[in-house]
């Protein structure tokens, strides 16, 4: 025992040492791959950003026509064109992600509270596996459901001829819309959020809940003020996961969003919700075959870089939001 250095419980020998070396190498390898990927993406994206400057994020002209011009210039080996104003795509991403996450958060929270605290045992036994199953359904299946069910429903029942005519000069309304995208995306991300929320709420110590009940505060208020409050860091973590999935979702959104580089205009009233658009990730997906054209490739990588950066910012924001919650002793 005396020979053991104080900092280590056991001296590393033989297989321990090998295991530590291998794990270390593995971690280093993973970090190196991540770093290389970041460098590669931003390097490829640079020409698009440097030509457009901050206008890249602005609006101006039809983004679809710009994409076409970028592609043709490279395809025909002309002078490369880079002009690209991504605002309609950014706006579409913000709208779809924001609305879906907002709705999913509220409904997931209530469902999770119900599952953990109020559902009878048999219902809990049914609900939990169903939620887990829903969380693992591939997005293309949600996309199909959208195309076959939600989009036709919106097109046939929610859009009148009159509203179609009122915006016909600029965009055609067919059911492929913001609404369809938001509805299906909500259904897609809610199960993930519910699963995470349930775990978090279940980890709240019973003694705190019991302490509150023993003071004559009813079950609902107790669970809301003690349970949900304590689980806030987990709610943040689950929401970050949901936003991440929503941001990165390409296939389903390409199928139902309408795939038009159009910025839905809130000024149009209720028609706003049935206007088509196309978010960033879906734009990459739909133009992925055109990577052979160098300016097109740089433009698509620029979009990818924006998505990567948003994802990183998202994790960071989640971390920042959790910090003040730790002060009173709640754990993530």
């Amino acid at each position: 025992m005396d020979a053991t250095p104080p900092s280590r419980l056991f001296a590393l020998r033989g297989s321990d040492q090998r295991a530590e070396l291998m794990l270390g190498a593995l971690v280093f390898g993973v970090l190196a791959v991540v770093a290389a990927m970041l460098v590669f993406v931003f390097q490829e994206a640079w020409p698009s950003f440097s030509h457009n400057g901050l206008h890249w994020f602005g609006s101006g002209g039809s983004v679809d026509r710009q994409i076409e011009a970028i592609f043709t210039s490279g395809d025909l080996k002309r002078r490369p064109v880079y002009t690209f104003h991504a605002w309609p795509l950014l706006w579409s991403t913000l709208l779809i992600t924001g609305l879906a996450v907002l709705i999913a958060f509220v409904s997931s929270l209530f469902v999770a509270v119900f599952i953990v605290e109020f559902a009878p045992d048999w219902m809990r036994a049914v609900l939990e596996p169903v939620v887990r199953l829903l969380a693992s359904v591939p997005s293309v299946i949600y996309g199909l459901l959208g195309v076959l069910v939600v989009v036709p429903f919106i097109g046939n029942h929610l859009i009148s001829e009159h509203s179609k005519a009122s915006v016909a000069y600029i965009v055609s309304l067919s059911g492929y819309s913001l609404l369809a995208a938001v509805v299906i995306l909500t259904v897609m991300i809610a199960p993930i959020m519910i699963a995470v929320f349930v775990n978090g709420l279940r980890a709240v110590p019973r003694s705190w809940l019991e302490g509150s009940l023993a003071l004559g505060i009813n079950e609902w208020r107790t669970f809301w003020k003690i349970g949900v409050r304590t689980a806030r860091p987990v709610l943040v973590a689950g929401t970050v996961l949901g936003v991440a999935r929503a941001l990165g979702e390409a296939i389903m959104l390409a199928m139902v969003s309408g795939s038009v580089g159009f910025a839905p205009n809130p000024g149009d009233g209720l028609i706003f919700f049935v206007e088509p658009s196309r978010p960033l990730a879906a734009t990459i997906l739909q133009n992925a075959e055109e990577l052979a054209s160098p300016p097109m490739r740089h433009t698509l990588f620029a979009i990818a870089a924006v998505l990567l950066f948003s994802a990183a910012m998202l994790s960071f924001t989640g971390w920042v939001v959790k910090q003040p919650m730790k002060r009173y002793g709640v754990r993530a």
């Binding site: 110590p205 302490g211 003071l215 004559g216 002793g329």
Partner: peptide, 22 residues
């Protein structure tokens, strides 16, 4: 009503269980 009863008859537990607040 259980809540009414528990306001009149309150309880302190074996393990101190203050809420995670100030």
């Amino acid at each position: 009503e259980p809540t009414a009863l528990r306001r009149r008859v309150t309880m302190v537990f074996q393990q101190p269980n203050p809420f995670p607040m100030s």
